[in-house]
């Protein structure tokens, strides 16, 4: 196997697996850890997850391809996910998306050439009271307008 975890991650994974009476049940949390460590769940990561949990790669692929949060290709350092569901759209999500597209020069599904940003649209994030909203990695940002987006994106490391 070519992928290697840090010792710390190994321990985390052992702890996760111990939380379930059946190893396979740890698949989602283990995939989250793998994605955090390697940035994606491509074929190699699938094989790694399969061997950790003693299941087939087919079963891992079934799961990886079902859930939207597993990135089968690497995303940029910052993954911007703009909500395109009802409330956010009512509150101007389309303009927000356009603005980000222009600002970064990419369309949803694309990554900037410096691998800094990936842009996606997503379904409801559960932050409708602050629509329009988006996630940058796992940080929620609401009440978006052009100014706020500039402030958020320009202040990232």
């Amino acid at each position: 196997m070519s992928l290697e975890f840090s010792d710390k991650t190994k321990k985390t994974i052992d702890k996760i697996i111990a939380r379930y009476p059946q190893k396979e049940a740890a698949l989602l949390p283990v995939l989250h850890v793998i994605q955090k460590e390697f940035g994606q769940i491509s074929e190699e990561e699938e094989i790694l997850a399969a061997s950790l949990l003693g299941i087939s790669q087919v079963k891992v692929r079934e799961v990886v391809s079902f859930y939207t949060m597993f990135n089968r290709k690497a995303v940029g350092k910052y993954h911007i996910q703009v909500c395109s569901n009802l409330t956010c759209t009512l509150m101007g999500a389309a303009n927000i998306l356009n603005f980000i597209e222009e600002k970064l020069g990419i369309k949803p599904g694309e990554t900037t050439s410096d691998k800094r940003f990936t842009l996606s649209t997503v379904e409801c994030l559960g932050a409708c009271e602050q629509a329009p909203s988006m996630m940058v990695n796992f940080d929620y940002h609401g009440h978006l307008d052009k100014e706020k987006i500039n402030e958020i994106l320009d202040n990232l490391e």
């Binding site: 087919v58 391809s65 079902f66």
Partner: peptide, 9 residues
């Protein structure tokens, strides 16, 4: 043997 799976959604 489980060679086949259900993929995507």
């Amino acid at each position: 043997t489980g060679e086949m799976g259900v993929f995507e959604r």
